[in-house]
């Protein structure tokens, strides 16, 4: 029984990280239909900011964490301005390919101007210590991560439901032209979406860095690939779907780690992706997306 609870909590914290990342992707997708693969590089920007603080001998963890989050938000805003504005009206495939291009450019910029090798960042190790409650062993990081995700979900819900800009963001995901006709500036809505997306990437960055303790140009690629999958499985562009997909993916991944025999250890990713593909074949638009008939005018 303890073992089951233990693994359940592991799944929850895995899922929390994926949900955090998936929300960042989904909020952008819901508004402009862009699959933002460059999200991973935003995370890396946060990581390199921590390196910069370490180089400046600033060890205060609050400054380091706040700095990383702010850097990620600024990077996200900049990308919207520079790269994604021209493809704002294009179809999802064009956006997807643009995001891939941006992601390749940024990875190589890190490689060229910083270093192709991993750089150690030790300033966040203090976040991680073992906890034991009633025979269940946990890392404090897992608790922080799950709590942060819950706070983020609640805050995001309040923002989207209780503020005018939040209402505009939600409306924009349904009918963008109509929102503009009511006098809300399109650029502000887009900027807001990317700002939130950058904030979520910055928060995820803190946890990823605290766990890995180093940053390299490909830091964000794998987590975002998983988050992307979570989004699609949950129903692309649906925020509850992103959260559901994130936790589902966490559960599947932990289940695979637990149930697969040791000899198949290298195949975890293959099995995870296989399950994802099967879910998509079962429900091509994801689990929580509304049923749309092809040809419906949206």
């Amino acid at each position: 029984m303890e073992y089951v609870i233990q693994q359940g909590l592991n799944a929850l914290s895995f899922g929390a990280e994926y949900a955090l990342l998936a929300l960042g992707l989904a909020i952008v997708f819901s508004i402009m239909g862009l699959v933002n693969f460059a999200h991973g590089e935003i995370i890396a920007v946060g990581g390199y900011t921590m390196v910069a603080f370490a180089a400046l001998a600033i060890g205060n963890p609050v400054i380091v964490m706040a700095g990383a989050v702010i850097a990620a938000m600024l990077a996200s805003l900049t990308l919207e301005r520079v790269a994604f504005r021209p493809v704002r009206k294009a179809d999802p495939t064009t956006g997807l390919l643009t995001a891939f291009g941006v992601s390749i450019v940024l990875q190589n910029v890190f490689l060229m101007f910083v270093s192709p090798r991993p750089i150690a960042v030790t300033s966040l190790y203090f976040l991680d210590w073992p906890i034991e409650i009633a025979g269940i062993r946990l890392a404090s990081l897992q608790v922080f991560e799950t709590l942060t995700t819950i706070v983020v979900i609640v805050a995001l819900m309040l923002f989207l439901r209780r503020t005018v800009l939040g209402l505009a963001v939600r409306a924009a995901s349904l009918d963008f032209e109509m929102v503009r006709l009511t006098g809300i500036k399109a650029n502000r809505v887009f900027a807001m979406a990317f700002l939130i997306s950058g904030l979520l990437a910055g928060l995820a960055c803190i946890f990823i860095m605290a766990r890995r303790g180093s940053v390299d140009p490909h830091l964000g690629f794998d987590p975002v690939l998983k988050a992307f999958v979570a989004c699609v499985v949950g129903g692309f562009g649906s925020l509850p779907g992103a959260v559901l997909g994130g936790f589902l993916l966490g559960a599947v991944e932990v289940a695979m780690l637990v149930m697969l025999p040791q000899s198949l250890g290298g195949m975890t990713d293959a099995f995870v992706f296989m399950i994802v593909a099967l879910i998509l074949i079962w429900r091509p638009d994801g689990i929580l997306s509304p049923a749309i008939e092809k040809g419906d005018k949206l």
Binding site: V35, D91, P92, T93, L96, L225, F228, V229, V232, F236, L264, G266, M267, D269, A270, F273, M274, V276, A277, L280, I281, P284, D285, G286, K294
Partner: peptide, 27 residues
């Protein structure tokens, strides 16, 4: 399976195929 999907869904499944085949090569 793939031909029954459209746009992003189909792309993700092809991505899954890439990852799975690569994992098999490595494993």
């Amino acid at each position: 399976f793939i031909v029954r999907l459209t746009s992003i869904g189909a792309t993700i499944v092809t991505l899954a195929v890439l990852v799975i085949v690569h994992a098999v090569f490595l494993y």
